[in-house]
Nucleic acid binder design. Structure first.
Lengths: 131, 131
DNA sequence: AAGTGAGTTGCGAAAAATTCGCATTTACTG
DNA sequence: CAGTAAATGCGAATTTTTCGCAACTCACTT
């Protein structure tokens, strides 16, 4: 996602396009894993922690980001809803995450429900820990 | 899950079988949705809040419970890992949860990874809100 | 380009959530 | 049923998140 698209995204939600918001979107966009509020704050120098929380709240409200926990990790994490489709497998022994490509949800349907997105986590043991 | 099974579960993990722990397992077992630490505390009269947190920590450590967030709801929730297979669909408009039976994960395999469990959430719109 | 106003931010303080220390109690072992 | 390690209660400390308010900035208008 480029700056232009972020700009449009914010405007289409009725949110002003500030440099703090662009910065946080940028960070979430380039992250290869969900981040905590504290981590995001560290990566946005000059931005107040309370502002980070307020921006995240707005983005949550607009369904642009999603809040999540990671099994066996502490804290609350945020990630772009758009990135959410990067599913992952979590090793119960070493606690490492492994991103996976597969998506078994393709043709899934649920009665009386229109599916627009989903989240999948697999638990188990990585090759190293199985030994 | 009956009291006997909970007893065995705790013992097999090397955890002492206290009435506080049984009470919390009981609560989680009969809950039809994930609960917050505060909710669990309210349902275990006479137990200190710090004890609730300590018990939940132990249960997390032993993979008996799982910590989770619920999209569009505030707070952190706990549920039995065993209950986790009750997948749900979340309406992005009215924020209601709908438990679903389907599980498209059946024969899924991932290279270099032994799958032992999973978690699936579907997002979208319920029949009411689609209108 | 300067003017305007709603929405945003920074800062510190307040509130809420979680963890910790320590004295006391409890569950399991022999 | 005595001994011991583990668990609990209580309150205080710490961490996380929210809030109030003055100052600032974006987007829109002349």
């Amino acid at each position: 996602m480029g700056v232009m698209e972020m700009n449009e995204l914010l405007q289409s939600c009725g949110l002003k396009c500030t440099k703090q918001r662009l910065c946080i979107l940028e960070i979430l966009n380039s992250a290869d894993k969900p981040l905590t509020a504290e981590e995001i704050h560290t990566l946005t120098p000059g931005t107040a922690l309370s502002t980070v929380y307020r921006i995240l709240d707005k983005l949550l409200e607009k369904n642009i980001v999603i809040k999540t926990t990671i099994p066996l990790s502490d804290g609350i994490f945020y990630e772009l809803t758009a990135n959410e489709h990067k599913h992952f497998a979590i090793c119960l022994a070493c606690h490492k995450l492994k991103y996976i490509d597969i998506c078994p949800i393709h043709n899934t349907t649920v009665s009386d429900f229109t599916i627009t997105g989903h989240k999948l986590e697999l638990y188990g043991y990585c090759r190293e820990c199985v030994k």
